[in-house]
Deep mutational scan, measured.
Amino acid sequence: KNAAKIVNEALNQGITLFVSDNKLKYKTNRDSIPSELLEEWKQHKQELIDFLTQLES
């Protein structure tokens, strides 16, 4: 999976991924984040940080 797909899947579940101080963060109104999503974010962390940083610049 690529970073764009992961970010879109998160958005579809009401979760916004973003970068703050070079760290991957998220915002959501959900009570909890599915563990498989958290695991996927960890596996692709640097790719996600790079992707989101490019989007914001």
Rank of each mutant, 00 (worst) to 15 (best):
T28D: 03
A3V: 13
E56P: 12
L55Y: 12
N29E: 13
F18K: 03
Q54E: 11
Y26G: 02
K45N: 14
K5A: 15
T53N: 11
S35T: 10
R30C: 08
A4P: 06
P34V: 03
A10T: 03
N22A: 08
K45Y: 15
D31Q: 12
E36K: 09
Q54C: 11
S20E: 15
Y26W: 15
S32E: 11
R30F: 05
K25L: 14
D31T: 12
A3T: 06
K45A: 15
L52T: 00
L52F: 05
S32F: 11
W41I: 11
A3P: 12
L38G: 02
K25M: 15
E36R: 08
P34W: 03
K42H: 12
E36Q: 13
F18D: 02
E56I: 12
N12I: 14
G14N: 05
D31Y: 04
D31K: 12
L17I: 06
L37A: 04
S20N: 08
N8F: 13
K1D: 08
N22E: 07
L55E: 10
T28C: 06
Y26R: 01
F18V: 06
L17Y: 01
F18M: 06
E47K: 05
Y26Q: 02
E9P: 00
A3F: 04
F18R: 03
L48V: 05
N12P: 01
E40T: 12
N12E: 15
L37C: 05
R30G: 10
V19I: 08
E56R: 12
R30W: 06
K23G: 06
Y26M: 05
N29L: 11
N8C: 15
E39A: 10
D50H: 09
V19A: 05
E36H: 12
H44Y: 14
S32T: 13
L48M: 03
D31G: 11
N29M: 11
Q46M: 07
N2D: 14
T16P: 02
S32Y: 13
E36M: 08
Q43D: 08
D31F: 06
N8I: 13
N12L: 15
E36Y: 14
I6L: 11
F18I: 07
E36N: 09
S35Q: 14
V7G: 00
T28V: 03
E40F: 08
L17H: 01
K25F: 15
L38T: 05
S20P: 01
V7K: 02
K45P: 03
Q54R: 14
I49F: 05
Y26S: 03
V7Q: 02
N8H: 12
I33C: 02
E47G: 05
S32A: 09
A3D: 01
F18E: 05
A10W: 02
E56W: 07
W41Q: 00
A10H: 01
N22W: 05
K42G: 09
T16I: 15
S35H: 13
T28G: 06
L52P: 00
N29F: 10
I15E: 01
I6K: 01
N2R: 11
K5V: 13
S20Q: 15
K23D: 15
I49M: 07
Y26F: 12
H44V: 05
F51Q: 02
V7N: 03
S32I: 11
A3R: 02
Q46P: 04
L48S: 00
T53R: 12
S57E: 12
E39Y: 07
T53A: 06
N2A: 09
K23V: 12
L38E: 07
K25A: 12
I49N: 01
Y26N: 02
N22I: 02
Y26K: 01
N2V: 12
A4G: 07
N12M: 15
I6T: 02
P34I: 03
F51K: 01
D50E: 14
L48P: 00
N29I: 09
I49L: 07
A3I: 10
D31S: 12
D21H: 08
K5F: 12
A3Q: 02
S35I: 14
V19K: 02
L55Q: 13
N22M: 09
V7D: 00
L17F: 04
Q13C: 11
E39S: 07
Q43R: 13
Q46F: 08
S32V: 09
E39H: 07
L55G: 10
Q54P: 06
H44L: 05
K25C: 15
F51A: 02
A3H: 02
N12W: 08
Q43H: 10
I15D: 01
L48I: 14
S20M: 09
L37P: 01
L37G: 01
N8T: 13
S57Q: 13
R30I: 07
E40Q: 11
R30N: 10
I6C: 03
W41T: 02
S57H: 13
I6Y: 03
E39W: 08
N2H: 12
N12D: 11
S32C: 12
S20H: 14
L37W: 08
G14Q: 04
T53W: 06
K1F: 12
L52I: 06
E56Q: 15
L38H: 05
L11C: 12
V19E: 02
K23L: 12
L11M: 10
Q13V: 07
Q13M: 15
F51E: 02
K42V: 13
K5G: 07
D50F: 10
L37Q: 04
K1W: 08
N29Q: 10
T53L: 13
P34Y: 03
Q43S: 10
L37H: 03
E39D: 10
E9C: 05
E9I: 06
L38R: 06
S35A: 14
H44P: 00
L24I: 07
E9M: 07
N29A: 11
S35K: 13
N12Q: 14
Q54F: 09
N22D: 08
K42C: 15
L24S: 00
L38C: 10
Q13F: 12
K27S: 10
L17E: 01
E39V: 07
L52Y: 02
L24V: 05
A3M: 11
T28S: 09
N8R: 15
L37F: 08
S57I: 14
S20G: 07
K27C: 15
K5W: 12
D21K: 06
L48H: 00
Q46H: 07
N8W: 14
L17W: 02
F18Q: 05
